[in-house]
């Protein structure tokens, strides 16, 4: 029974890691196809990828869209969460439901809806329109995370600050936000990773400047290539570093 348990665990980890292992291994392929046999180890595909101007532009676009849209989503979500957690407003249950609703809808439908509106109003597609879509999907996330993190302890601190003469904005900026720092950071980085990796919204709502997943998508059309492996491995490396950094800083402190 014991042996069986560990064997099962090993088999599933192997299944989970198989594609990533293959991806990374054949990014070093010294040949034209990223399939076995491995003909030798070379860094030339990384060179190809890093000197590809379209790819690097897409990478920059992705970072820009991710950071700007996540900042906007966090700002909107935090303010709304603060209001709904602190002030008794009529219809607050309805408002909470409305703010969370986009989470339950497929990205494809959100993208198609926005595309319809942009087409009808004549708004040109650009990185901005994709960014708008990313705020729509990340706002519920930021709202839910910050809303869940607001406790009574903060309420007392906020009241104390107000009694000592702080204005509403001072309370928000100097008391509420710093006390929620771990939740705010978690919401922000989660939004960044979602936006940075999002495909369908970015695909339908950009035109000339595109984000990295869209650029990788167009690389796929020309078939298997170790260059795709290389850019995939680089993305993986960046994401994993981010996750490990988060794990070691914010989540460790939160526990």
């Amino acid at each position: 029974m014991r042996a069986l348990t560990w064997a099962y665990m090993a088999a599933l980890y192997a299944f989970i890691f198989l594609p990533v292992a293959v991806l990374v291994t054949f990014s070093f392929q010294d040949g034209r196809l990223p399939v076995p046999p491995l003909q030798g180890v070379s860094l030339r595909w990384y060179e190809t990828v890093l000197s590809d101007r379209n790819l690097m532009a897409a990478l920059g676009n992705s970072l820009l869209v991710a950071v700007v849209s996540s900042t906007a989503a966090l700002f909107l979500g935090f303010l709304a969460a603060h209001a709904l957690a602190r002030v008794r407003l009529p219809g607050s249950v309805l408002m909470r439901g409305l703010l969370i609703a986009p989470m339950t809808v497929s990205y494809l439908i959100i993208a198609l809806g926005l595309l319809t509106v942009f087409n009808q109003t004549g708004i040109r597609l650009s990185l901005w329109t994709a960014g708008i879509g990313h705020v729509v999907i990340n706002l519920p996330l930021c709202f839910a995370i910050t809303y869940a993190a607001m406790g009574d302890q903060q309420r007392s601190a906020e009241r104390a600050a107000r009694d000592l003469g702080a204005s509403d904005w001072q309370v928000l900026a100097h008391v509420s936000a710093p006390m929620l720092a771990p939740a705010l950071a978690a919401a922000f980085f989660l939004s960044v990773t979602f936006s940075w990796d999002e495909f369908i919204i970015a695909f339908l709502l950009t035109r000339f400047d595109v984000t990295l997943p869209v650029e990788i998508w167009s690389m796929l059309r020309s078939g298997l290539s170790p260059a795709t492996n290389a850019i995939g491995s680089l993305v993986f490396l960046v994401s994993v570093s981010l996750v490990i950094a988060l794990e070691l800083t914010i989540f460790r402190r939160a526990r």
């Binding site: 989970i16 594609p19 990533v20 991806l23 399939v35 990773t193 990796d197 997943p213 993986f236 994993v240």
Partner: peptide, 17 residues
């Protein structure tokens, strides 16, 4: 951990496998 590979790239990796 493989969750953090790009979604598009993950499907592509299965193509290699």
């Amino acid at each position: 951990l493989p969750f953090w590979t790009s979604y598009v790239v993950r499907s592509y990796s299965w193509l290699l496998v």
